Simulated assay, not measured.
Amino acid sequence: MDKKRFMVVSGFLGAGKTTTMVALTEYINSIGKHAAIIANDLGANYIIDAEYSSRQNVEVTPIGGDCICYIPDTLIERINRLNKEPKDIVMSDIPGCGIGALDHVYGNLDKNHKDEFTLAPFTVIADPERLRMIMPEQADINLPEELKFLLDAQLREADCIVLNKTDLMSEEEVARYVKFLQEACPGIPVFPISAKEKTGLEALADYVLTAESRVNITDIGYGGPEFISAEKKMSWFNRNVFITSKDGIEFDGNQLVDDVIDEIRDGLIANKRNVPHLKTFAVGKENDYGKASLIGVDYDIIHDQELKENTSKLQLVINARAVCESDLLLDIVDEAFEVIAEKYNVKVKLFFNECFGMMDEGR
């Protein structure tokens, strides 16, 4: 029986895990091989990464409601499902700042399913802006000190590191970041790419299609006091709403989404909180869609795809991972939608909502 090649893609919030997986899958498919994606999220429904990926001409299946670290049977079933038509590789992300997948996922597959799976290099996507927290400048980017633990732990798990967003960097900056990563993670290959511009993918694709993970499981403090302290700072938020114009007049969906994001941003700033990653996915007329994101209250909104037409009806999904208590985060988002409803003269119908802290009782 031929083994199935599987790869986990880890990385900090907003590093571009989904964009990298889509770009890498598209490239692999373009050279006559076949790749597919599993989009994993702790939210129970409406996973933006799965919705967006499925519109990029790649094969994707979602796993929601839990991390692949803790549902091995579901993960194996999805890998096998995607391999009904044989794939050269199936890749999956892990939610948010997730660490521990090297042990929980690769360790389990290596120990109990060695004859079924070839484990491709455990791949960590690095965001140059967030790396500044642990580089010599020790930059303050308005995230709690506790989150440095998560970033450092992710790099320690890596079989290879992908320095993403090189389109935003000079050649000198790329060289400096690569040098830092090589010194911080000796012996680990570093691949500078731009997933957005689809550059640097050839060497990365060749590596993940041919190399294998060391499955070098070491103690990174998972479940320890530093891990718990970092996770206590974070909350998840997922909401799906349907927005309709009260008077039938079409509105600019792109501007409405930007205003929702800015209202949430203002609420977080007023409460001295932050959002390392907020994503929105909006669908207007005839599957006209837009995707926007925010990687912190101090950053500009990123538009991966904009709506092409004004509309009188809009489905909007928001996924967020915030440095904010869950109750406060829920209040901030509710207030944002109240402002938007009045400003645009629209009705906002709630279809799905969840907001929880990782340490909330009953989670």
Rank of each mutant, 00 (worst) to 15 (best):
E361T: 13
Y344I: 12
E325S: 09
R321W: 03
L329F: 15
K343Y: 13
L314G: 04
K349N: 13
T311A: 04
E354R: 08
D360W: 03
K347F: 11
L328E: 13
L328N: 02
E342F: 08
I318K: 00
Y344A: 09
F351M: 10
D334I: 12
A320T: 03
E338M: 11
D331H: 12
L350K: 10
E342A: 14
A336G: 11
G357T: 06
V333E: 04
N345C: 10
G362W: 09
L316S: 08
E354C: 14
L316N: 04
L316C: 12
I332L: 04
V339P: 00
V317I: 14
A322Q: 05
I340S: 01
F351C: 12
N319H: 05
K343D: 11
I340H: 04
M359S: 15
K313Q: 10
N353Y: 12
I340V: 15
T311V: 02
V323Q: 00
I332E: 01
A320F: 06
R321E: 10
A341N: 11
L316M: 09
Q315V: 08
V317E: 04
N353V: 09
A336L: 11
A320E: 03
D360G: 07
E335C: 04
K349G: 07
L314W: 07
E342C: 02
I318F: 02
V346M: 04
F337W: 12
E354Y: 10
V348T: 13
A336E: 02
V323G: 00
E361L: 10
D327K: 15
S312R: 11
R321K: 06
M358G: 10
N353I: 08
D331A: 13
I332Q: 01
E361I: 13
L314S: 09
T311P: 06
L316F: 09
A320W: 04
K347Y: 05
V339M: 06
S312G: 05
E325A: 15
D360Y: 07
L329P: 02
S326H: 15
V333R: 03
C355N: 14
D360R: 13
N345F: 12
V348C: 07
E361R: 08
D327M: 12
D334N: 15
L316Y: 06
L330E: 14
K313L: 10
D360I: 05
